[in-house]
Amino acid sequence: MGSRLRQVASLLRSNREAALGAVIVLAFAVTSLVVEAGILLNLQVVPYSPIQQNVGPLLASPSLAHPFGTDSLGRDLFSRIIYAMPNDVAVGYVVVASALAVGSVLGSFAGIYGGIADELLMRFTDVFFALPVLVLAMVIALLLGSGVTNMMIVLAIVWWPPYARLARGEALKVAHQNYIEAARLSGLKARKLIFEHVIPNISGTLLVYATLDIGTVILTYSGLAYVGLAVRYPYPDWGLMVSDYNAYVLSAPWLPLFPGLMISLGVIGFSLLGDGIKETMEKR
């Protein structure tokens, strides 16, 4: 693990794009933690309450007092945007982590042991691939009800199949290497074999994919939020803000623009970082 961190550090030094990505990713993560800590400790870390109305004039354009302007109820847009950041960031990390966990275990099991389990997994994921994750998530969301946590669950349910496929392919590659065969023949328990030998060997590829994928999760979550499945009024969420503020696109165009820009910025951050890591991996 130490060597991996060192690789990332040298990447960030040599690749300016990846470094920019890392800065964005880090800034988002730190801000989100601060905001969450503020909520837990009951401290207000943003300039204004995100839900308090009339903290400024209605539909004020960006100014020093309100850097992103105010909305039609006189709420401070900057505070609302910062306050909403942990939603997207947390969903991104949690969903990818769970997909990584489920996918790598199922996939490497199928890849190493083959047989009916493998066949079943492949056919099952085939069906998943026929349905757009977003639509599938919407259907399940309708059953589970809305809310950020529920969206995490919904996305976790639909997100793992590509990881299982990837892990299976990678596991197939290592399956015939001597140490794996030897470990298998020596009667090592499946659980031990997979967790101690297979997964450590395929984790590099999966982690690169995962880094790039966090952005995609954020995009999909913002889509669910846009159709109103994530956050309840009056609390803010980027996707929902774009949707709500659509009506003011003529009178106050900054209202839908800033939250949309934040989504793009977050996704770009993960793309740049992921691309950089992928390039270094491929060079070796």
Binding site: L219, G223, Y226, V242, V249, L257, S264
Partner: peptide, 22 residues
């Protein structure tokens, strides 16, 4: 293209709406 595929379609739609329509 990085900007394009990192942006939610509705955000791009809003930008185009502001620029080309309004």
């Amino acid at each position: 293209y990085l900007g394009g595929y990192s942006s939610p379609p509705y955000f791009i739609a809003v930008i185009l709406l502001i620029v080309f329509s309004f």
